[in-house]
Design a protein around this nucleic acid. Structure first.
Length: 556
DNA sequence: ATACCGTTGTACTG
DNA sequence: CAGTACAACGGTAT
C-alpha cells in the first residue's frame, strides 16, 4: 500500500489555507454522494474535508478456516461488492475535487488517531444502530468531545429514527407491522427535502504521517485464487444503484402494481424484485430517495398497491426490523432475547452441512442454496423456503446456524433484517403459525413446473424430466440413467422424508410453545434440556417418527 | 372470555 | 385462478 502521489500534491495545496477549519467525514455505510446529510454538513463551511473509510481486517482479510472464500465475517461476494462500492465512491469524490482516504486497522483506533493528527474541528458520520457501530461510535464520540471536536451523526440510513418510534411506544419497540405503521405515521422526514446535491467538495487536507492507500482489489487483500464461479452478477456502488433504481421505476405499471407475495422466486434471468437490497444495505442508495421516487410514481397513476405488500411497504418492513432490532437486547440470539420463543432446536452438524452445501437431496432447496453461494442473493420467498426447511419445517436446526450462513453469504445481509427474518421464519417471533410449512417439493413447482431454475443452478439435474425434477428419487432407474444422474451417486438422496419430518417438527413446536406459555417465556437452559429429552424419548417410543430421518427403503 | 387478524401453506374443488 | 377446508399459533381489540 503506497501513498498516492496526487494526494501529496493536493495536501500541500490544502495545508496552505491554514486559517480554514477542517472536518473528517467517516464513511461506513452510507457509501454515496446523493442525499448524504453527514457529507453535506462536513463540507459546509469547511476549508478541507477528509473523506475516510477504514478497512477492518476482521471484516476484509482472508480467513482460510471459514466454510467459504472470504474473511471471518464476510463471504467474498460481499467483500467484492463493498470494494466496488468504495471504488465508485472514490470516483465520485474525485469528480467533486476530493478523494477517498482508505486506512486500515481497528476503526475507532484509526479514526481517533486521525483526529489527533489532523487539524479538524468536526467529525461527521451517519448514525448506525448496529451494536458493532454503537460501541465504536461511543469510543470516537468520547474522544471527540474530550478534544473539543464537534460530532455530527445524523440518522440517514432508515426512513425513521428507531429511537423515536421506541420512545413513542413507551420504551419498547412495536412487535407487529401494523402497530409499527400506526406509531410511525406519515414519514415526514422521508418526505422532506433531500440533502442538496453537491457540485464540489473542499479539498483534502494535510494527511501527516497517516498511511493512506487506494481502494484495494480483492487480489491485494489476499484473495488470489478465488473461484470465479462464485461471482455475483450484481456490481456494487452508488452509480449502479441509481442506474438500477431508474430502471425499476421506469416501469410505472410494475411499481404501482407490485405485490411482494405474488413475485416469482424462481425468476433468475430477470428477478421479480428490484434487487436494490444490497445497495440499501451499504447505503449506496438512500432509502429516503428511493421512497420519494416511489411516491412520485404513485402520484401519477390511478391506483397503486399499499403496505405491507407494496414497494413502499418493503421499505417500511426494513424500518420495522431496524426498530425492533435496536430496541431488543440480544436480538441476534435465542438466549436472553425477550421476544424470542425458547425452542429445543437439534444440534446436527451433518444435516446443517448438507443444507449449507446444497446437498439435502431436495432440488428446490439445493438450487436456492447454490444461488445463495454463487450470487449472494435470492428472492425473498426462496429465502423463506430454505429457512423454513432448516428450522421448523424439516431439519429442526437452530435458526442462528442458518442466520450465520446467510450473514456470511448474502451481499445484502443486514443485522436487523436478516435476524428479523430468521426469527420470523423459525416461528420464534413475529409469526407463529407453525403448521404452515413450505413444501420443498410443491412450492417451487407451482411457479416453475418445468424446473428451469433447478436446471440452471443444479446442472447435474438438467436432463431430468420435469415429472421428477422436484423429486428425482422417485424417478425409475432407467430414467435416472437416461438423465445421466443416478440418485445417491450423482445427486444425493433426500436427507429426510418431508412428510414425517414436518410432522415431527410440528409436534416439537407444539410442545415447545406449551412450555413457553406455561413458564411465561422464562425458559431456562435446564428446562430446554428436559424438553429435548422428553421429545427424544417420545421419538424412540413411536416407531413412526423414527422414519423422520430418511433411509433408502423409504425412497420411491 | 371471545372474536378477529396476520406480507407470502397445502391440497382440493369448481 | 378464486374459494374452501384443514388446523390452529400469538397478539390485539372488544
Amino acid at each position: 500500500m503506497r501513498i498516492s502521489p496526487s494526494l501529496s500534491i493536493s495536501s500541500i495545496m490544502a495545508s496552505g489555507s491554514a486559517t480554514g477549519s477542517g472536518s473528517l467525514m467517516w464513511f461506513r455505510k452510507g457509501l454515496r454522494i446523493h442525499d448524504n446529510p453527514a457529507l453535506e454538513y462536513a463540507s459546509k463551511g469547511s476549508a478541507f474535508v477528509y473523506p475516510v473509510f477504514v478497512i477492518d481486517p476482521h471484516y476484509m482479510e482472508p480467513d482460510p478456516t471459514a466454510f467459504s472464500p472470504g474473511s471471518t465475517l464476510a463471504g467474498l461476494n460481499r467483500i467484492r461488492f463493498l470494494l466496488e462500492s468504495l471504488v465508485d465512491l472514490d470516483l465520485s469524490l474525485k469528480k467533486l475535487g476530493s478523494r477517498l482516504l482508505v486506512l486500515k486497522g481497528e476503526p475507532s483506533e484509526v479514526v481517533i488517531r486521525c483526529l489527533k493528527q489532523w487539524n479538524v474541528k468536526k467529525i461527521c458520520f451517519e448514525y448506525d444502530t448496529d451494536p458493532y457501530y454503537q460501541a465504536l461510535d461511543m469510543k470516537v464520540k468520547n474522544y471527540a468531545s474530550s478534544a473539543g471536536i464537534e460530532v455530527f451523526s445524523p440518522v440517514s440510513h432508515t426512513l425513521f429514527n428507531p429511537a423515536d418510534i421506541i420512545q413513542k411506544n413507551g420504551g419498547k419497540p412495536p412487535l407487529s407491522y401494523q402497530s409499527f405503521l400506526k406509531l410511525a405515521g406519515q414519514p415526514s422526514w422521508a418526505s422532506s427535502l433531500l440533502s442538496v446535491s453537491l457540485s464540489s467538495l473542499p479539498p483534502v487536507g494535510d494527511i501527516g504521517s497517516c498511511e493512506i492507500s487506494e481502494v484495494p482489489t480483492v487480489r491485494e487483500l489476499g484473495y488470489e485464487d478465488y473461484e470465479q464461479d462464485e461471482l455475483t452478477p450484481f456490481r456494487g456502488g452508488e452509480s449502479e444503484a441509481l442506474k438500477r433504481l431508474k430502471e425499476s421505476i421506469s416501469n410505472k405499471e410494475w411499481v404501482a402494481n407490485f405485490e411482494k407475495p405474488k413475485g416469482d422466486p424462481s425468476a433468475y434471468v430477470k428477478p421479480a424484485t428490484t434487487v436494490l437490497s444490497p445497495y440499501l444495505k451499504f447505503g449506496c442508495l438512500s432509502s429516503r430517495y428511493f421512497y420519494q421516487c416511489l411516491t412520485d410514481v404513485y402520484k401519477n397513476v390511478k391506483k397503486h398497491t399499499a403496505p405491507p405488500v407494496s414497494l413502499v411497504g418493503q421499505l417500511l418492513w426494513r424500518d420495522f426490523f431496524y426498530t425492533v432490532a435496536f430496541g431488543t437486547p440480544n436480538f441476534d440470539q435465542m438466549k436472553g432475547n425477550r421476544i424470542c420463543k425458547q425452542i429445543p432446536w437439534n444440534n446436527d452438524d451433518e444435516l446443517l452441512a448438507a443444507w449449507r452445501e446444497a446437498r439435502t437431496g431436495f432440488p428446490w432447496i439445493d438450487a436456492i442454496m447454490v444461488q445463495l453461494r454463487k450470487w449472494g442473493w435470492m428472492h425473498h420467498l426462496a429465502r423463506h423456503c430454505v429457512a423454513c426447511f432448516l428450522t421448523r419445517g424439516d431439519l429442526f436446526i437452530h435458526w442462528e446456524k442458518g442466520r450465520d450462513v446467510f450473514e456470511r453469504l448474502l451481499i445484502d445481509s443486514d443485522l436487523a433484517i436478516n435476524n428479523g427474518n430468521w426469527l420470523w421464519l423459525s416461528c420464534s417471533s413475529f409469526f407463529y403459525q407453525y403448521h404452515r410449512i413450505y413444501s420443498p417439493i410443491s412450492f417451487g413447482k407451482k411457479y416453475d413446473p418445468n424446473g428451469n431454475y433447478i436446471r440452471h443452478f443444479l446442472p447435474i439435474l438438467k436432463d431430468m424430466p420435469k415429472e421428477y425434477i422436484y423429486e428425482p428419487w422417485t424417478a425409475p432407474l432407467s430414467i435416472q440413467k437416461k438423465s445421466k444422474c443416478i440418485i445417491g451417486i450423482d445427486y444425493p438422496k433426500p436427507v429426510v422424508s418431508h412428510d414425517s419430518a414436518s410432522k415431527e417438527c410440528k409436534r416439537k413446536l407444539a410442545e415447545a410453545y406449551a412450555l413457553n406459555q406455561k413458564l411465561n417465556g422464562q425458559v431456562s437452559e435446564d428446562d430446554l434440556k428436559t424438553l429435548r429429552r422428553k421429545l427424544e424419548g417420545d421419538e424412540i417410543q413411536e416407531p413412526r417418527s423414527k422414519r423422520s430421518r430418511q433411509n433408502p427403503t423409504d425412497l420411491s
